[in-house]
Design a binder for these strands. Structure first.
Lengths: 343, 343
DNA sequence: ATGAAAGCGCTAACAG
DNA sequence: CTGTTAGCGCTTTCAT
C-alpha cells in the first residue's frame, strides 16, 4: 500500500518556477497578459508535477459551482434517459456538470430535492414536476436569486421561467380523434388525480375532440387517480361493472394503460375488439404488452437539448429573458394494435 | 426587477446572536457539544434570516465534494436509465450527489471525462467502459489517490477495483444453446471489434455451447465490428452472399441485431424461418422490431444499486477492500419470435 | 508582464 | 460549552 502523493497547488508551481501564485493562476487560465514563454513554462511544470486544479477552491472563490441540476419524477423511462442524454450533451460541451435527482413523484421529496440543489448552489436547474405538485413555491428561492430555471415536460406555466413541453391539448385531441375514427362512441379518460397543467391539457384535448365529433361529454367516463399501476387495474374492473360499458379508453400514461390492458384481458375482455386502449409517452412497455399499445410519442432527446440550450442562454446573459417562455415541441401518435378496431 | 438579496453567512448569524462563527457552525451541524438552547437559537435565526449553508466553502474546507461521478457509453437506453435510477437512490440517501457524463463510446472522450471528473474532485466514480477502451490507464489517477472506483456492466478485470457485471460467459452460452435447440447448425456470432472482456466473455460462452453440442467452430462465422447500426446492415448482406448460408446469428447487442433483422427482411430473408436472430441487452427496440427480438435481459436497477452500495462501502471504510472484487449479478434470456423456429 | 495581499465561507485544532 | 485562530487553494483587484 503506497502512500498517497501530496496534492500539488499553484504555490508549488510558483515556487518551482520562481514566480508568484497569481502568475501561475493566470498562466493556467491562458490569460493573454502573461508572457507567452512564462505561460508555456507554467503549463509544462504543471504537467510535470502532476498538478490538478482544485475546482473546490475555484468554485468558492468564483461563487459558482459549474453544476446544473436536473430533477424529475423518475428516470426509469426511455423518455427521460433521452432527455438527460440531450441535456448532458449540450451542457458538457459548455463546461457544465449535470447532477441528477429523482423525486419519485412525491411532493415532499421534490421540495427537499429543490432545497438540496439550492444549497449545493447549482448554477441552473431543469425540472420536470412530480405528479403531486400543485404549486411552485418551493422554487421561489431560485427565482429570487436569479438562478435560471427551466421546466420541461411536466410544466406549470410560470411567468418568470421557461417551460419546454409538447402541445398536450393537441396530443390529447389527436389520440381521442383516432379512437373516434376507430368507431368508439363511449370513450373513457383516465388522468391524474391532481390535475397538473399537463394532465389538464390532455383532458382539454379529449373534450375538444368529442365536441368536434358531436359525442356528448359524460362526466362518468372520467377517472381521476394518481395514475399508479394499481389504478389501471382498478379502472379495468370498474369498466366491467358499468351499465353502459365504454368501448374505448384514453389513459394519460403508458404504465397505467398497460396495467389496465392486463386486467381487461384477465377479465376476458377483448382489446381492442371490446375496448380500444390508448396511452401516452411511448414508454418501453408500450411494445411489450400484447396487444402493443397505441400512444403518443415525443422526442425526449430534443426536449433535453432544447431545455438545456435555453438554460445556457440565460446563464450567459441573464437579462435576455426570451420573449416566448413557453416552448412547444412536436409530438405524434403511434398507432399500434391496442386501438385498431378496423384492420 | 427586484434586487437579489444578500447571501447570509454564519458570520451574520453569529453577529445577530452574539456568539462566535464557530459556535454557529457547530450548532448548524447539530454538534452535541453545543448547548441545546444555543443550538435552537441558531437554527431559528438561520431560518429567519434566510440562511443557506455554502457547500462550496464547506467542500473546500473539507476537501470533499460530496459528489459521485458516473460515466458510460451512452445513457440513451432503458438499461442505463435503470442503473442510474438505482445508483441515485442509494447515493442520495447517503447524502451524495450524482454527476453524469456520457463517453459516446469514444476512448478519447472517456479519457477527457475521467480527467474532468478527477479535476472536479468527485469522491468516487462509477464507470461502464466505452467499446473502444482497451486499457484502464486513464483511471490510474483515481487508484493512486485512493478514490473509490467501481466498474459496472462493461468491466475490465482490475486488481484494485470492484467490478459489477453479469456472467457474460453464461449468458452467451445460454443464448447460443437456445439457438442450437431451435435447430440451428451454422450460427454466426457478431461481436465487438475490439474484444472487451464483456464481448470476449460472450464469445467464450458461444464457443463453449457449440463445443458442448458438438458443433464445429467455424472462424468464418465470426464478425468483428464496432457494433454500430450500419454494421448490422452490412453483416446481413454478407450472410446473403455466403456459400454456406448460416441459419442463425447471435449478435452481441440489440441495436445491431435489430438493424440486422431489418436488412434481412429487406433482402427477403425470413426471420426466424431462414435465419434465427438473437441479441443482447433487452433494449427498447427489442420489442418494437418485427419479429420481436430474443435477447438477454438483466436488471439495471439492481446493478446500479449494487455498484453504488459497494462504492459507499469503500467511501465509509477505505481499508475494507472487499474480498471478492468481481460481483456477478443474475441475467436471463428472453425468448421472443426472432429465434423461434419451432412453434 | 508580474507581484502582494486580501478574501470567498466554512471547519477544526487548540485553548480556555 | 464557547471563542480564537488559522487555513483550505484559488482569483482578483491594485500596485508596480
Amino acid at each position: 500500500m503506497s502512500a498517497i502523493p501530496k496534492e500539488i497547488t499553484i504555490y508549488d508551481i510558483a515556487r518551482a518556477l520562481n514566480v508568484s501564485a497569481a502568475t501561475v493562476s493566470r498562466g493556467l487560465a491562458g490569460h493573454e497578459s502573461v508572457n507567452i514563454k512564462t505561460r508555456q513554462k507554467i503549463t509544462e511544470a504543471a504537467q510535470a508535477m502532476g498538478y490538478r486544479s482544485n475546482q473546490l477552491a475555484s468554485n468558492l472563490r468564483k461563487q459558482k459551482s459549474n453544476v446544473i441540476g436536473i430533477m424529475m419524477g423518475t428516470l426509469r423511462s426511455s423518455f427521460m434517459s433521452n432527455v438527460i442524454a440531450g441535456a448532458e450533451e449540450i451542457l458538457s460541451k459548455a463546461g457544465y456538470n449535470l447532477i441528477i435527482s429523482q423525486t419519485l413523484e412525491s411532493l415532499s421529496k421534490e421540495i427537499n430535492t429543490a432545497k438540496a440543489m439550492y444549497n449545493n448552489r447549482v448554477d441552473g436547474l431543469m425540472v420536470s414536476l412530480a405528479y403531486e405538485t400543485e404549486n411552485l413555491d418551493h422554487f421561489d428561492s431560485f427565482v429570487q436569486r436569479g438562478i435560471p430555471l427551466v421546466y420541461f415536460d411536466r410544466v406549470y406555466p410560470h411567468p418568470h421561467c421557461i417551460g419546454v413541453s409538447i402541445d398536450n391539448v393537441k396530443a390529447g385531441y389527436d389520440i381521442t380523434e383516432h379512437l373516434i375514427k376507430q368507431g368508439c362512441k363511449r370513450i373513457m379518460h383516465m388522468t391524474a388525480f391532481k390535475l397538473s397543467s399537463v394532465a389538464a391539457d390532455r383532458f382539454a384535448g379529449y373534450k375538444k375532440a368529442l365536441e368536434d365529433y358531436n359525442i356528448p361529454f359524460d362526466e362518468n367516463l372520467i377517472t381521476l387517480t394518481p395514475l399508479a399501476l394499481t389504478d389501471g387495474t382498478e379502472v379495468a374492473r370498474q369498466m366491467l361493472d358499468m351499465e353502459n360499458r365504454p368501448d374505448g379508453i384514453f389513459v394519460a400514461n403508458d404504465a397505467c394503460a398497460v396495467s389496465c390492458i392486463q386486467e381487461l384481458k384477465r377479465l376476458g375482455i377483448n382489446v381492442p375488439g371490446d375496448i380500444a386502449v390508448a396511452g401516452f409517452n411511448n414508454d418501453t412497455e408500450a411494445c411489450i404488452i400484447e396487444p402493443n399499445l397505441t400512444t403518443v410519442n415525443y422526442n425526449g432527446y430534443e426536449m433535453g437539448r432544447t431545455a438545456a440550450t435555453h438554460l445556457l442562454d440565460q446563464l450567459i446573459d441573464p437579462s435576455k429573458k426570451s420573449e416566448k417562455n413557453q416552448i412547444i415541441l412536436d409530438s405524434d401518435i403511434i398507432i399500434r394494435e391496442s386501438s385498431l378496431k378496423k384492420a
